[in-house]
């Protein structure tokens, strides 16, 4: 997990979190859909608060996110996978994506167990827009930035993308490139650089 600096304020758990049945996927379709929606909102705000960009399913099961120790209720692996699958679907707003090690998307869902998942509390397109806005705001257009500088540099310490997962950053910058707003080039060994224009 890409946890960086722990925010000083404690995360405010939603009221659903202290409702025992919330940790059992409801069998009735309408209830279930509202439950999935609540889970999705909860997971996104949790990840946003803790600056988590991707989850490893197995490890996440024992974290406070999926395990409420005061209630001794825990989401089962199967249910957690169901929720994330729903989040990854268009119906769930594509707020998650299974990361595959082989590059095959279909397979990534099946891998499940040890699988890692992007949690898109901002989607790559939204990150791209935010990066562009940041570059614009700080007058760094036309300047060559290293990727490391973007996520770890002093200029971005207060930004939401500080400490961002490199892979996600590359995906987001890829969107910028596709839009014709930036260009990525590698400077040989020193890591990649990017120029916005």
């Amino acid at each position: 997990m890409a946890t960086t600096t722990e925010p000083p304020t404690a995360f405010q758990f939603p009221p659903h979190y202290s409702f025992p049945p919330f940790f059992t996927l409801q069998p009735v379709a309408t209830t279930r859909s509202s439950q999935l929606q609540s889970w999705s909102t909860f997971i996104q705000s949790y990840c946003r608060h803790h600056h988590i960009f991707s989850l490893s399913l197995i490890d996440a099961l024992s974290t406070p996110l999926f395990h409420n120790t005061t209630l001794s209720r825990q989401l089962s692996l199967r249910d957690a996978k169901a929720i994330l699958t729903w989040m990854a679907s268009p119906e769930g707003g594509s707020r998650a994506e299974f990361i595959s090690s082989t590059g095959n998307k279909k397979k990534a869902v099946d891998e499940g167990e040890g699988g890692r998942v992007w949690i898109y509390w901002r989607r790559p397109e939204e990150w791209a827009a935010q990066l562009e806005e940041w570059v614009d705001r700080t007058g760094q257009k036309g300047v060559v930035l290293t990727l490391y500088e973007i996520v770890e540099g002093e200029a971005s310490v207060r930004e939401e993308f500080a400490g961002m997962d490199m892979e996600l950053l590359r995906m987001s910058l890829g969107v910028c490139v596709k839009r014709g707003r930036a260009q990525i080039f590698s400077s040989g060994g020193e890591g990649e650089g990017i120029k916005f224009f």
């Binding site: 659903h16 025992p20 409801q26 009735v28 209630l71 209720r73």
Partner: peptide
């Protein structure tokens, strides 16, 4: 349950049926 008037919790041994009105009230235990 079919009318979404109660939610089921399967993790307590016997199935417990909770009222969603307790979502905002917080669990009782």
């Amino acid at each position: 349950m079919a009318d979404s008037l109660v939610w089921v919790d399967c993790q307590a041994g016997e199935n417990e049926y909770w009222s969603p009105a307790f979502i905002t009230g917080g669990g009782l235990r």
